[in-house]
């Protein structure tokens, strides 16, 4: 086991995520090709890249939503390449979605409760037991943590966009994550909400490894210690936020997108 306090690529420590030669085709579209990636325990990793670069597809492969068409996925030392998403949850892999995937007919508290039970097991239990009280409390506590305390009993369909994005993160936190993957958590958020989000991301415990897809350079480069830049399905640049800020290719790829990243 690597020491969680050793930030990033501690020499010798085995990565908790290891991708080798990952490729994913959709018919004729080569969404991801030949990606090698190591992420170590406790790391904060940003994945950048223009639209269609293959970032979300890479997340889907890591989370197990579909298998890669080439290469292997290793999580916490286990080869999970052909395992479905639900087999990766017990390992502590959780994620959020670029476009919120919530349970619109349930309350905020129930959404989080379902997420807690997802990690705890007992999915087929048609009874309410004593331990559900504790699960309910955990769910509400996570709701408070992501700033949804006042709307815990509101139906998710009635939440604002910003609140839905907060709940997205709450759902992923409820699964007791060891590897937390966030797909554009700042998408559609107002400026003030982005600042709050950045604070929240910076406040995560180091026992949680974070991989973050984000177009907002302010958020991404503040939170990340390592940056992976993708383009056309490939990894084109890797480096620290400072190196990324200075990199000409990054500037070229993001030019005209309105995300200068220049400060």
């Amino acid at each position: 086991m690597s020491d969680p306090s050793s930030i990033g690529a501690a020499p010798g420590a085995a990565p908790i995520l290891r991708l080798r030669g990952i490729g994913r085709r959709f018919g004729g579209v080569h969404a991801v090709r030949d990606v090698d990636l190591d992420v170590h325990a406790g790391e904060r990793r940003a994945v950048l890249g223009p639209n269609g670069a293959g970032k979300t597809t890479l997340f889907n492969v890591i989370a197990g939503e579909f298998p890669p068409t080439a290469g292997t996925v290793e999580l916490f030392g286990v080869d999970v390449t052909d395992k479905p998403a639900r087999a990766r949850v017990p390992l502590g892999v959780t994620r959020t979605y670029q476009i919120s995937r919530l349970f619109g007919g349930l309350s905020v508290a129930d959404n989080l409760y379902v997420a807690v039970i997802g990690a705890e097991g007992g999915h087929l239990r048609p009874l309410r037991l004593g331990k559900d009280r504790a699960f309910r409390a955990t769910a509400r506590e996570i709701g408070e943590r992501v700033g949804l305390g006042p709307v815990l009993d509101t139906a998710v369909g009635e939440l604002s966009h910003g609140e839905q994005r907060q709940l997205e993160i709450g759902m992923a936190l409820a699964g007791e994550p060891r590897l937390l993957m966030l797909d554009e958590p700042a998408a559609g958020l107002a400026r003030a909400e982005r600042v709050k989000l950045t604070e929240m991301l910076l406040g995560f415990d180091r026992s949680i490894t974070v991989i973050l897809i984000e177009h907002d350079m302010d958020v991404a480069l503040t939170v990340a210690e390592h940056v992976t830049m993708m383009h056309d399905g490939r990894v084109v640049v890797e480096g620290t936020p400072d190196e990324i800020r200075r990199n000409q290719m990054v500037h070229d790829l993001y030019l005209g997108r309105g995300h200068g990243g220049d400060e």
């Binding site: 989370a63 349970f103 129930d110 759902m171």
Partner: peptide, 21 residues
């Protein structure tokens, strides 16, 4: 109950439910 809420969760978003385990 957990089962009942899971059934409703699948109604609302089956993909999310798979990702939750």
């Amino acid at each position: 109950t957990p089962f009942g809420l899971a059934f409703q969760g699948i109604r609302d978003n089956a993909t999310r439910m798979k990702a939750l385990g």
